[in-house]
Computed example of a mutant assay.
Amino acid sequence: MLPGFRSFQAASTSMLPAFAPGACFVTERRDRDTNPPPRGAIIVFRHPLTDADPIFRLTGLPGDEVQMRNGRLWLNGAEVAQSALPDLTYDTSQDPTFPCPSAPPGTATCEIDRAMETLPGGANYPVLNLRDGPLDDTGLLTVPEGHVFVLGDNRDNAADSRLPAHSGGPGMIPVGNIWGVVSSDS
């Protein structure tokens, strides 16, 4: 491995469909960079309370107001655009713990609602919606200076910035904790 680069592995289904559990990728170290990456970047960061290196999508920048309403992302008072995509068929035999409310027990595949989300600035990516979940509605959150807000693309299976660090998520991520940005070539 070249100096300044590090390899990581996706530990969960929180970033489906971009990264399946076990997917490997490489990032370049962002030493001393005090500017956050752009909205829509997939980042790896040091968890504020643990030694974990989660991978999530950066959706909120310092000063942004972020909220989830009925499973949809709102930024600065405006609903983020989504357009329907064909359902994703996920092979649950690879991960028998994957929560799939639409499939009977013992079924090998799961059909998951999928949509293309487009952030202000144009970054777009597919997101998944398994069901109505407890994190589908949040209060209005303001991203503090020097921090970012992250979400998993698999919204109903992601312990992301919607959860504070003391409740199992990472909360707002200090920009200095961002290890690197995952290249689209990973």
Rank of each mutant, 00 (worst) to 15 (best):
D31I: 02
R32A: 13
R32G: 12
D33Y: 07
P36T: 13
P36D: 05
P36E: 11
P36A: 14
P37D: 06
A41L: 03
I43T: 04
F45E: 01
R46H: 07
H47I: 02
P48T: 00
I55N: 07
I55L: 11
I55M: 10
F56G: 05
L58D: 05
T59E: 14
E65P: 00
M68G: 01
M68N: 06
G71V: 11
L73P: 01
L75S: 14
L75I: 01
L75N: 13
G77A: 12
A78Y: 11
E79W: 02
E79V: 09
E79T: 10
D87Y: 12
L88S: 09
L88M: 15
S93C: 08
Q94N: 12
D95K: 04
T97K: 15
T97R: 15
T97S: 12
F98K: 00
P101G: 08
P101K: 03
A103I: 10
P105L: 09
P105G: 10
G106L: 08
A108M: 11
A108P: 04
C110I: 07
E111C: 00
D113C: 06
M116D: 10
E117S: 08
E117C: 08
T118I: 01
T118P: 08
T118V: 01
P120K: 10
G122L: 15
G122F: 12
Y125G: 11
Y125K: 13
V127Y: 00
L128M: 11
N129L: 14
L130F: 06
R131P: 02
G133I: 04
D136V: 07
T138H: 05
T138Q: 10
G139N: 07
L140Q: 12
L140A: 07
T142C: 00
T142N: 03
E145V: 02
G146R: 06
G146H: 09
H147Q: 07
H147A: 05
F149H: 12
D153Q: 01
D153L: 01
N154F: 05
R155Q: 00
R155M: 00
N157I: 00
A158Q: 06
D160C: 03
